[in-house]
Every structure is written in structure tokens, then in C-alpha cells.
Simulated assay, not measured.
Amino acid sequence: MALDVTLETIDDIAKITLAGELDASTANLFKAKVEEAADQNPKRLVLMMQDLEFMASAGLRVLIFAKQQKLPGVDIYVVGAQKDTVLDTIKKTGFDQSVYLVDKYEA
């Protein structure tokens, strides 16, 4: 399955919605949206992951890139990550200590 990535910015909140599979072949799509969001200087990055079915280490690298290089100091919210396929990847690496993991997000 492919990856669908959309970016919406309201005020100073950038929201990226991901659906499908985030792996080595699709990570550049996600990275491009992170860079586009960073260009808008948001105070918060919200990653809507309810429909993300899988995330490989390439997707995690983009998250780390976002947190450390493109958006340092910006709060990152990971919303609705599926336990077995996405959330476990984030937690096994300890990246859950660097982001806010929430089931739902309301601005």
C-alpha cells in the first residue's frame, strides 16, 4: 500500500495526516511535508497517525530529523498511533520520550 500525506496549517499549528504505509520507499513523501511544515515556523506539529498502518525505521528517522534538525523546540504530538504497527516502533527506540503520544487531539 502507498502512503498518503497531507499538510494543513492553521495559525501556528501544522498538522500532517498520514495514511497507509511509511517505509523506505515512502519516507521521502513524509520528509517533504515535514520540511514544508517547518518553513511555516509552527509552534506545534501534530501528526495524525490513526490511518497509518505500518512504520518502518525510515519513518522513525524522519521523526528524529523533524525533532532534532527541522523543528527543534517545537512540540510534536503523535495522535492515534496503532499499537502493534506504529506505536511499538516509537516506544522501542525511546522516541516516545521526545514527543507527546495522545489518542485524540483537539487544538
Rank of each mutant, 00 (worst) to 15 (best):
residue 54 F to Y: 13
residue 12 D to V: 09
residue 22 L to K: 00
residue 12 D to F: 00
residue 73 G to R: 05
residue 16 I to L: 08
residue 96 D to I: 09
residue 80 G to Y: 10
residue 32 A to Y: 00
residue 1 M to Q: 13
residue 10 I to F: 14
residue 34 V to C: 02
residue 20 G to M: 03
residue 95 F to P: 13
residue 29 L to A: 11
residue 57 S to E: 01
residue 67 K to P: 01
residue 81 A to F: 05
residue 80 G to A: 10
residue 82 Q to C: 12
residue 24 A to G: 13
residue 53 E to Y: 02
residue 94 G to R: 14
residue 99 V to S: 07
residue 43 K to R: 15
residue 73 G to W: 00
residue 54 F to W: 10
residue 74 V to Q: 00
residue 83 K to L: 12
residue 59 G to A: 06
residue 104 K to W: 10
residue 75 D to S: 11
residue 30 F to P: 03
residue 22 L to D: 03
residue 51 D to Y: 03
residue 74 V to F: 03
residue 7 L to F: 04
residue 77 Y to T: 01
residue 4 D to W: 10
residue 36 E to T: 11
residue 10 I to V: 14
residue 27 A to F: 08
residue 22 L to S: 04
residue 39 D to R: 14
residue 82 Q to K: 15
residue 18 L to Y: 01
residue 35 E to V: 05
residue 74 V to K: 07
residue 74 V to R: 02
residue 71 L to I: 02
residue 16 I to Q: 01
residue 42 P to V: 02
residue 7 L to H: 03
residue 40 Q to H: 04
residue 20 G to S: 09
residue 73 G to N: 06
residue 32 A to V: 12
residue 65 F to C: 10
residue 39 D to P: 05
residue 103 D to F: 02
residue 37 A to N: 07
residue 5 V to Q: 00
residue 41 N to V: 00
residue 92 K to R: 13
residue 17 T to L: 11
residue 22 L to M: 11
residue 27 A to K: 06
residue 96 D to S: 14
residue 28 N to Y: 13
residue 29 L to S: 11
residue 12 D to T: 12
residue 64 I to E: 01
residue 56 A to L: 05
residue 5 V to A: 08
residue 53 E to T: 12
residue 41 N to F: 14
residue 66 A to L: 04
residue 44 R to K: 15
residue 65 F to D: 01
residue 55 M to V: 11
residue 94 G to N: 12
residue 2 A to C: 08
residue 12 D to I: 01
residue 106 E to W: 10
residue 3 L to T: 08
residue 70 K to I: 07
residue 47 L to H: 03
residue 89 T to F: 04
residue 56 A to F: 11
residue 74 V to W: 05
residue 66 A to R: 01
residue 22 L to P: 06
residue 62 V to R: 00
residue 64 I to P: 06
residue 48 M to W: 05
residue 24 A to E: 06
residue 45 L to W: 02
residue 106 E to S: 15
residue 97 Q to A: 12
residue 6 T to G: 08
residue 74 V to S: 07
residue 38 A to Y: 13
residue 42 P to S: 05
residue 4 D to T: 14
residue 40 Q to A: 09
residue 107 A to M: 10
residue 60 L to D: 03
residue 11 D to C: 08
residue 105 Y to W: 11
residue 47 L to R: 08
residue 104 K to C: 14
residue 42 P to I: 00
residue 32 A to S: 14
residue 11 D to H: 11
residue 29 L to M: 15
residue 47 L to P: 07
residue 9 T to N: 12
residue 54 F to L: 01
residue 45 L to P: 06
residue 43 K to Q: 13
residue 84 D to C: 00
residue 16 I to A: 03
residue 104 K to S: 15
residue 78 V to E: 12
residue 104 K to M: 12
residue 18 L to S: 02
residue 6 T to V: 10
residue 62 V to P: 04
residue 74 V to H: 00
residue 58 A to M: 02
residue 93 T to S: 14
residue 52 L to E: 03
residue 25 S to R: 07
residue 65 F to R: 02
residue 50 Q to T: 02
residue 102 V to L: 11
